[in-house]
């Protein structure tokens, strides 16, 4: 098995070029995905950030990618959401009260309550039994730390939110791993490794 093919959903608002480059540095092939058929051909899928959740939720429906994406996740295809892409994995978001999330994770994305927002810059990702790691954040909304799938949290002015969530092969980061130095690169490398492993198992 060579490099896995990672499909980056092109929902019209993302720093998709930077995500593609960062995944390619980890040894993945990448392709931009805009059709249900293309989803079927990928070993793993990435929903990027740098977007208003209302916009990408509407694009997801317009391109008819919602059901194929959920089906891929149910089949065990690894899925990574970044920032707004991650927020789309929850049930709903305060940023887009009328939009439906993918409900891959339980819970609702809320506006942060810090006096200074958006939360912009480097902050610590705290995962149990691991040293805290610096990562780059740029967001005004976040999933509560109490979400069942939370595996790491970050604190801003006394408020904790989920900075990484995971359920089986479904993974999300509130920070931008593609812009978070060596830690972010290691995070993406582990996702690429998961994609490769899963593709091997499914082809065996």
């Amino acid at each position: 098995m060579g490099s896995p093919t990672l499909g980056i959903l092109d929902l019209g608002a993302a720093n998709r070029a930077n995500i593609a480059r960062a995944l390619e540095r980890c040894g993945a092939r990448t392709t931009f995905v805009t059709t249900p058929d293309a989803i079927e051909r990928c070993d793993a899928l990435v929903v990027p950030g740098v977007a208003n959740v209302a916009y990408i939720a509407a694009e997801l429906d317009r391109l008819q990618l919602r059901e194929p994406l959920v089906r891929a996740a149910e089949r065990g295809v690894p899925l990574l959401g970044i920032c707004a892409g991650f927020q789309l994995f929850f049930e709903r978001s305060d940023e887009a009260p009328n939009a439906r999330g993918l409900a891959l994770f339980d819970g609702v994305v809320r506006a942060l309550s810090a006096p200074r927002l958006p939360h912009m810059g480097w902050n610590l990702v705290e995962e149990r039994e691991r040293a805290p790691q610096w990562a780059y954040f740029a967001h005004g909304f976040a999933a509560p730390a109490s979400s069942r799938c939370t595996v790491a949290t970050t604190e801003l002015d006394g408020e904790c939110f989920a900075s990484i969530a995971r359920r089986d092969g479904i993974l999300g980061a509130q920070f931008h791993p593609e812009r978070s130095g060596a830690y972010g690169a290691a995070f993406l490398a582990s996702f690429v490794a998961l994609a490769k492993e899963t593709a091997c198992l499914q082809s065996a």
Binding site: V50, A51, N52, Y55, A138
Partner: peptide, 9 residues
Amino acid sequence: AAERFGTQC
């Protein structure tokens, strides 16, 4: 711009 890319962009 914010309606499409979010205010953080």
